[in-house]
């Protein structure tokens, strides 16, 4: 049995440490906020200009001036602060954010990440992803292990346009966890999802990897 989206988010939450300033991407990474361990103080940054993101509002309490980077309505905390996009990316680019958890389309054994466009098909844009992978101290990618077609997404080299080269520290998929180490050390499988065999994960991975379970 592969991990569910929530199980992947819970695994990613184990990367959090007390006192961390963290940026969570759209999709599964957003769910990580639900798995912050009790008693741990983590401050969530939203790159549109906020530190200290609170939970989604109750119905009827939505504020059009208060959204996250996924354009969802959110709330503020007593500890929150607001700032411009230039200040926000000074925090990101300047290395002041400890951890970024992002979604991915492809990851390579060299630590490259592609998650912003499919030429001729998907035209969305990179948003803040290129700045995050360039500036944040530790980059964790959470994604399905293969495409809907079954094609592998953990590759020797990405075929899609890159978001960043040699930027991924850790990869969490629905099948397991890999230390990527920004491509500076060999790719290493460090955990398997419950019920997933080594043979299965090898069959679904193009990249070369070591096994360190």
């Amino acid at each position: 049995m592969a991990w569910t989206r929530d199980e992947m988010a819970a695994r990613a939450a184990s990367e959090l440490r007390d006192g961390f300033y963290v940026n969570l991407g759209i999709g599964i990474p957003t769910l990580v906020a639900n798995y912050i361990p009790a008693g741990m103080h983590v401050t969530l940054q939203s790159e549109n200009g906020m530190l200290g993101m609170g939970p989604f509002p109750h119905e009827g309490e939505e504020d059009a001036d208060l959204i996250n980077a996924g354009k969802q309505t959110i709330t503020e905390l007593d500890s929150s602060s607001y700032f411009s996009s230039a200040d926000s990316f000074a925090m990101i680019r300047g290395g002041h954010i400890a951890l970024s958890i992002l979604g991915g389309m492809q990851v390579s054994e060299k630590g490259d990440l592609a998650n912003w466009m499919v030429p001729g098909k998907v035209v969305k844009g990179m948003g803040g992803a290129m700045d995050l992978v360039a500036g944040v101290k530790r980059v964790v990618v959470v994604m399905d292990h293969v495409e809907k077609s079954g094609a592998p997404k953990l590759l020797k080299a990405c075929t899609l346009p890159l978001t960043g080269a040699g930027v991924v520290d850790l990869l969490i998929t629905d099948l397991g966890v890999f230390e990527v180490g920004r491509g500076k050390s060999p790719l290493k499988l460090t955990a398997l999802a419950s019920g997933v065999t080594l043979d299965e994960i090898k069959a679904k991975t193009e990249a070369e990897f070591e096994v360190g379970l």
Partner: peptide, 26 residues
């Protein structure tokens, strides 16, 4: 990139014609 866009505008308004960033390298 969003941070590059924000900084390009900040720089433009502040009379800075160009700057260097790690964002987007490669």
């Amino acid at each position: 990139p969003q941070g590059t866009l924000a900084e390009r505008i900040r720089a433009g308004g502040a009379g800075i014609p160009a700057f260097f960033t790690k964002t987007g390298v490669g």
